[in-house]
Design a protein around this nucleic acid. Structure first.
Lengths: 212, 212
DNA sequence: GTCTATACGAGGATAGAC
DNA sequence: GTCTATCCTCGTATAGAC
C-alpha cells in the first residue's frame, strides 16, 4: 500500500493562469481575515498549494498581491451592482439593488471585510486609484429619481446611499461580534439567517425613504 | 541659549495612574488604526512619551493591553447608550439612541474602528467575555415597545437594531473609502458633515420603522 | 514555472541599572 | 516606576537549482 499520495490541493502542472488565480483566492481569504498589515505571506502560501516564492514571481511583493486582490474584488462588486436594472420603478430598483448587494456579499463573504479593511487600515489609499464611485452611483441615481418622481422623501441621496450600504455590510463585518446576541449555535451565514437579513434590510431600506 | 528642553509630551513623574492612562490612550489610537495584529508596540510607545518597557510593566503583553483598551471602549459605549432615557415615547427614544450613538462615535472616533477590528480580525474572541448585549439591548427594547404600542412596523427587533447600528458606524469605519465620493477636500469629521450624518441617520432610522 | 534554502530586517518581549 | 540595551523569533523577500 505505498501509493503515491496527491499533493494536498492540486498538482503543480505549470499552468500560469491557474496558479495565479489560486494565489489570488488564498490571498483574498487571508487579507479578508487580517488586512494588509496583519496578513502573513506564509499563511497565503500554505493555503495555495504552491510555494511562497511563486507569489513573488507573479506579484512583485505583498502590496502588489494586495492590490490585485482589491482590484478583482472591486470589479466583482461593481459588476454585481451593474447587473441590476435600475430603469424601472424607483421602489423596485432600490429593492433590487439592496438585494443584489446582500446576495453578492453572501456569495463571496470576503468582500465586505476586504473593503472595510481597505478603509480602516489602509486609509483608502488604493481606492483613490480604483474609484469606488460605481458601487454607490446606482443607489444614488435611484434615490434621486425616486425623489424627483415624488415617491421618496427628500433625503440627501449620497448620505442615504452610504447609510444603506452600511445596513447591508455591517451584518457581515460584525458577524463575529453580533453572533453573541443570537441563541448559541446560530450560524449567521446559514441560509435562513442570510435570507432574513436580506428581507429585513430590503424592507428597512425601502420603508426608510418611501413617502407615507 | 542652552535651555533644558521639556520632554516631547509630559514629564515622567512617577504617577502610575497617569502613565497607565497615557498608554491606554496611545494604544487605543494604534489599535483603532491597525487592529491587534497590525498594531506595533513600538508605535504605541512612541506616542506615549514613556518607553516600551513601561507598557509591559503595566500590561503583561500586547494582548493584555489590547484587552484593557477594549474593556474601556465597551464601558464607554455602553455608558453612552445607558444615559439615554428610553422610557418615554418610542419614537423619541429611538431618535435619542441613534443620536447618542453617533455623538459618541463623533466624540471618540476610535471606538467604531476598535469594535469593527475586534470582529473582523479577532473573531469577536474578547467580546465573548465582555458581553456586547448592553449596547444593542436598549435599541431592541425601544423597537419592541414601539411595535407593541402600534407605532412601529412589525420588524424583527434584533435584526433591525443591528441594521441601525450599521447605519451609524459605517460612515465612520468607511470614512477613508467614501471620502472619494464627496467633493475633494471635504472633511468627513468636520462639524457640518457630522451634523448632517446624524440628521440623515436619525431620520432614516425613524422613518424605517414608523407606521405610515 | 516551480521548488528549497536562506538572508535580513522588523517587532515582541525581557534583563538589569537607576 | 522608569529607562537603556539587547535578545530572538517571526515574517518578507531573494538567490539559485531544477
Amino acid at each position: 500500500m505505498s501509493l503515491i499520495l496527491p499533493q494536498k490541493t492540486a498538482p503543480s502542472c505549470r499552468d500560469a493562469e491557474a496558479t495565479k488565480s489560486r494565489i489570488l483566492d488564498a490571498a483574498e481569504e487571508e487579507f479578508a481575515k487580517n488586512g494588509l498589515r496583519g496578513a502573513r505571506t506564509e499563511a497565503i502560501a500554505a493555503n495555495t498549494g504552491v510555494t511562497k516564492a511563486m507569489m513573488y514571481y507573479y506579484f512583485s511583493d505583498k502590496e502588489g498581491l494586495y492590490q490585485a486582490v482589491l482590484e478583482r474584488a472591486v470589479r466583482r462588486r461593481v459588476s454585481a451592482m451593474q447587473k441590476v436594472d435600475i430603469d424601472g420603478e424607483a421602489k423596485t430598483a432600490l429593492r433590487d439593488l439592496i438585494s443584489a448587494l446582500i446576495d453578492e456579499a453572501s456569495h463571496n463573504q470576503n468582500l465586505p471585510a476586504i473593503f472595510m479593511y481597505e478603509g480602516l487600515q489602509n486609509q483608502g489609499r488604493f481606492y483613490a486609484q480604483i474609484s469606488i464611485t460605481s458601487v454607490y452611483a446606482p443607489i444614488v441615481q435611484v434615490l434621486e429619481r425616486g425623489i424627483e418622481t415624488g415617491q421618496f422623501r427628500k433625503v440627501d441621496p449620497l448620505h442615504t446611499a452610504i447609510n444603506m450600504v452600511g445596513i447591508c455590510v455591517h451584518y457581515f463585518c460584525s458577524a463575529p461580534n453580533i453572533k453573541h446576541l443570537f441563541p448559541p449555535g446560530t450560524d449567521l451565514y446559514g441560509p435562513e439567517m442570510l435570507e432574513q437579513h436580506k428581507k429585513e434590510a430590503v424592507e428597512l431600506a425601502v420603508a426608510s425613504v418611501l413617502l407615507r
